[in-house]
Amino acid sequence: MNAITPLYPLQESASEAAVEIAQRWRDLKDAEPHLRARDAADRLGVSEAELVAARCDGRDIVRLRPAWADLLSELESLGRVMALTRNDHVVHEKHGEYIGAKVFGNMGLLVNPDIDLRLFLGQWDHVFAVTELTRSGVRNSLQVFGDDGLALHKIYATDRTDDAAWSRLIGRFRAADQSPGVRVAPTHAIPTDPPDQAVDVGALRARWDGLKDTHDFVDLLRQFGVGRMQSLRLAGPERAYPVQRDAGRIVLEYARDDALPIMVFVGNRGLVQIHTGSVSKLVSAGEWFNVLDPRFNLHVRMSAIHSVWVVAKPTVDGPVHSLELFDEQGALLMQVFGERKPGRPQDPRWRALLGVLEPCSVNETGRHVSS
């Protein structure tokens, strides 16, 4: 973990910094009342956790104890909620229940038809219960942040949430310290790829061809010390090849038209959230391409997509193909698979769908493709 430093080094405490942040936030809200919290934090030059903690008062903003295993278990009592996971350019929202959470040390798992999560709890540091007034009325949420103040996961109450259970959860996990402010670590640096010439490409390809499960791919990256996009560039076109930048939109439209069930993975360093099923209502709005279905919403900032790849990985059930979207820095923003269960091969319709995409050329970094 990076060393924790105060936002304002000349001030004595996070509480003093919080006073200034809260005032600047009020001024900004007065000028732009519908500005989203993440955008407001960027405008103010602070993390989203600092923005929330600056208003911590033990009433509308309540700091909770980060007892992750117990907290995840308690979420089941809430009933239907909305789970939100995002990164810089993609937002994934699912309605459902947090049933059967399992925790194994710093790893957590929920596998449900709706709320389907892979949790990396070692990255979770702060959690707050937030009550705020929005255009649609009062909105309650639980918000989880990393040590650098990045928002990792949010859980929103819905009209089918048990309000009494929500209040009990806040009471049970309420922290003793409700003073405003929080100290955060420096922003996590993006890992640097090794030079291509330092990678044993032949061994990497052999290891790739020996995969038995898609989940083993992360171990491959660790073994060779390569970045994800770097591995795609070095893998050879029979394993991975770039396609047009708007391939994500094309694939979602084909899946809708053919009623083809898919799996959509969106994550950050703290967790991955998964939708499994069909998509129906697709809407473009400015730079965003959206899925607006009753229990699944997806928002993709198309202008931020700089590289898209079709990736093939071998498994014991046969090859599995995915579409992977990256930003200009090479960060993985989203993956799309055909719906598949262990023990079953992938749907041939999914492979055929990916076949309509046009292979493209990339530059030496692999981070830009022609459209």
Rank of each mutant, 00 (worst) to 15 (best):
W350H: 11
P6K: 01
L64K: 02
E328I: 11
G58R: 12
L354V: 05
G202R: 13
W124S: 06
D216G: 08
P186R: 00
P180M: 08
G108F: 06
T85R: 02
K281N: 14
D70F: 01
Q223M: 04
T365L: 09
A285I: 13
Y156D: 01
S280H: 14
Q335A: 11
S77T: 10
A3R: 01
L51V: 07
V266N: 02
E97M: 05
R351G: 11
L150S: 05
V91I: 12
L64Q: 03
T158L: 07
V226H: 03
R59K: 08
F289H: 09
D246L: 08
K313C: 06
E93Y: 02
A198L: 10
L323G: 10
P195S: 09
H368S: 12
M302N: 13
R38G: 00
D347I: 02
V111P: 02
R172F: 12
H306E: 15
L51N: 00
D39L: 11
E358K: 14
V184S: 01
V218N: 08
R233S: 05
D213E: 14
A69V: 00
Q223Y: 09
S280Y: 05
A53C: 07
R43C: 03
S47Q: 03
V283P: 07
E324W: 05
E12Q: 14
T158A: 07
G79A: 07
R139A: 15
L109D: 14
E364H: 15
L44A: 04
D219C: 04
T192R: 15
D177H: 10
E324V: 05
E76K: 11
L133G: 11
I250T: 09
N106D: 14
A206L: 14
L298N: 02
E93L: 06
P359T: 08
T214Q: 11
T5I: 00
A22S: 14
R160S: 10
L169Y: 02
Y241Q: 09
L260F: 09
L71Q: 08
T315V: 08
D327N: 13
W25F: 06
A259M: 04
A352L: 11
R222C: 01
V356R: 15
W208L: 13
E74Y: 07
L133P: 02
A164R: 15
L142H: 13
A285K: 15
P261E: 12
G122C: 04
R63I: 03
V362H: 15
F128K: 11
G286D: 08
N112T: 12
D213H: 15
F173M: 06
R183G: 01
R55P: 01
L211W: 10
T134P: 03
L7M: 07
N297I: 01
R256D: 02
T85D: 09
